[in-house]
């Protein structure tokens, strides 16, 4: 049987979800018997294979135009999209920015912060532009949700092995946590 191709990326995230993925420890060797890791923050490849992957994993919320482009590309190139962690699933802690508003948050960070002298809000066309923070499913359809801040390694392992077995993961008990 051909190996399953998996790509992942993180958006507005703390990297905790990917750390939790690495926390599956030696089980990653078992995983690699069935899975080819395509573009991931671990392999440091930036774009999923243009020919497509079977499973795409996104952690983090969408809070700028770059994240939005990454999310849309992942959706285009994967069969099954997993939203990994509270930020990807709900918007998470990143949505706190929405409580003050994007403009207000940028001004506070780049101009008003105590350590800043003559600050300015970055506006280079090469950079993504900040937008209202959203969960992944507010941008593209998501197939599998795995909340948690971060989700435990066991919950990640459960979801991946269920998918490998051809089942849609149903989270319950210790696998379903919001914190």
């Amino acid at each position: 049987m051909a190996k399953i191709k998996v790509a992942s990326d993180w958006l507005a995230a703390c990297a905790g979800c990917h750390m939790s993925l690495l926390d599956i420890d030696e089980r990653i060797l078992t995983l690699l018997e069935y899975v080819d890791l395509d573009a991931t923050p671990i392999t440091d490849l930036k774009h999923p294979n243009p020919d497509g992957v079977d499973v795409g994993i996104l952690s983090g919320a969408v809070n700028n135009t770059t994240n939005k482009a990454v999310t849309e590309q992942m959706r285009e190139r994967c069969q099954i999209l997993i939203a990994l962690g509270d930020c990807a699933v709900f918007g998470g802690i990143v949505t706190m920015r929405n409580l003050s508003g994007t403009e207000e948050a940028l001004r506070r960070a780049y101009i008003e912060s105590e350590s800043t002298v003559d600050g300015k809000i970055p506006s280079s066309p090469e950079l993504g532009r900040a937008i209202e923070t959203r969960a992944v499913d507010q941008v593209v359809p998501v197939d599998v949700y795995l909340p948690g801040c971060p989700p435990s390694a066991d919950a990640i392992w459960f979801v991946l092995t269920e998918l490998l077995a051809g089942r849609k993961p149903e989270l319950e008990g210790e696998n379903l946590k919001y914190d």
């Binding site: 949505t95 969960a135 507010q138 989270l171």
Partner: peptide, 9 residues
């Protein structure tokens, strides 16, 4: 088993 939210945040 609420693993996601259906309505706007």
């Amino acid at each position: 088993g609420l693993d996601s939210w259906k309505y706007p945040r």
